[in-house]
């Protein structure tokens, strides 16, 4: 019989019954290994996925830039970028076509002679805010209604899902326009509008997983122990339905940034002279034909890189959070 330390057994000497000795307190390959937390375990697996790590770095960099600018916006100067992003300087825009990249203006200047690099940096703040806040709003609504819908079923499910269908069926931009008309223009209203519109995706996605998870025996076990519905939904069901949601969150943030761009393009998003990537793309598009490629290129590249970062990180996170996936 394998020798082993049965520390702790003295606590229950009186309760120890014949079975235990028969069993030889189980020893296995996990013995002696420090148990990892789920997140530590996730991180260990995530590290191996190079694409996900790249995505994560991108996200961190852009979040950092956005956050720095956010903090800087409260200082008297109002920005951290090398130039005032909104300072018009016609001298730098002969013929109203801006000036191409140079040592002093690496991304060039736009048609009003504003430094594109500074504008892209400051725009990062707004774009990241849109992504994160809009998705957060959508997620909160979606992850409350989705599990409730799936868990209770019946008429509750019908009502929530039919409402979600309406949100899906309605032309998206038209819907945002409608909400923006009601709320009025403004940065926060953009967040709210995009957020409200996004919930249906998360709710429906989550409801599907909830349907399969709620049939699991551990959910029944929780019920047998007298757990309340709320506890079952948020402790047992929801955490086990999150894997597809992670991907959706990542896609959603990318999507929200793009949607904001589209709104700005239509002139109902960010109000001038504030800059977001979408707003910049919208403003600069017409200058491409005139040969001023730098104005459009840099905000577009930033947008694409960010969306890519979120998607590859989201995919990696989905795979890494599954505790059943052994190494």
């Amino acid at each position: 019989m394998a020798e082993r330390d049965t520390s702790g057994s003295q606590v229950t000497q009186d309760l120890t019954i014949s079975t235990v000795s028969e069993l030889d307190l189980i020893e296995d390959k996990y013995s002696g290994r420090k148990p990892l937390g789920l997140w530590a375990d996730t991180w260990r697996r995530l590290k191996r996925n190079h694409l996900a790590v790249v995505g994560m770095c991108i996200i961190i960099v852009f979040l950092a830039v956005g956050m720095t600018e956010e903090i800087a916006s409260f200082t008297p100067k109002g920005y951290l970028a090398p130039y005032n992003p909104n300072a018009v300087n016609y001298a730098l825009s002969p013929k109203g076509l801006g000036s191409p990249p140079s040592w002093s203006h690496p991304f060039g200047t736009d048609y009003l002679g504003r430094d594109v690099f500074s504008r892209v940096l400051v725009a990062t703040r707004i774009s990241m805010l849109v992504g994160v806040i809009a998705v957060a709003i959508a997620l909160i609504i979606g992850l409350i209604l989705g599990p409730i819908s799936g868990y209770y079923g019946g008429w509750v499910d019908s009502v929530i899902m039919r409402t979600a269908d309406v949100f899906f069926a309605f032309p998206y931009i038209l819907f945002v326009l409608l909400i923006m008309t009601v709320l009025g223009p403004g940065l926060w209203n953009v967040f709210i509008a995009i957020g409200i519109l996004g919930w249906a995706t998360y709710a429906r996605l989550n409801r599907g997983s909830v349907l399969s998870v709620k049939a699991m025996e551990y959910v029944e076990a929780a019920r047998a122990q007298g757990a309340s519905d709320l506890r079952i939904i948020f402790r047992h069901v929801l955490p086990n339905t999150m894997a597809p949601v992670y991907v959706a969150i990542a896609m959603g943030i990318g999507g929200a940034i793009v949607t904001e761009a589209a709104l700005s393009f239509l002139g109902i998003g960010i109000q001038p002279p504030n800059a977001s990537w979408g707003k910049m793309i919208a403003d600069y598009l017409s200058y491409l034909a005139a040969g001023s490629w730098w104005m459009l290129t840099f905000p577009s590249v930033f947008l694409v890189i960010t969306v890519f970062g979120f998607i590859s990180f989201g995919n990696g996170l989905r795979d890494a959070t599954d505790p059943k996936l052994k190494e």
Partner: peptide
């Protein structure tokens, strides 16, 4: 801990996740 001992597991199992068991 007491319950784990009763069913023949050890207290060191308490911190683990189900997938680590047979």
């Amino acid at each position: 801990f007491e319950l784990l001992e009763i069913v023949g597991l050890s207290t060191e199992h308490a911190e683990r996740y189900p997938h680590e068991f047979s």
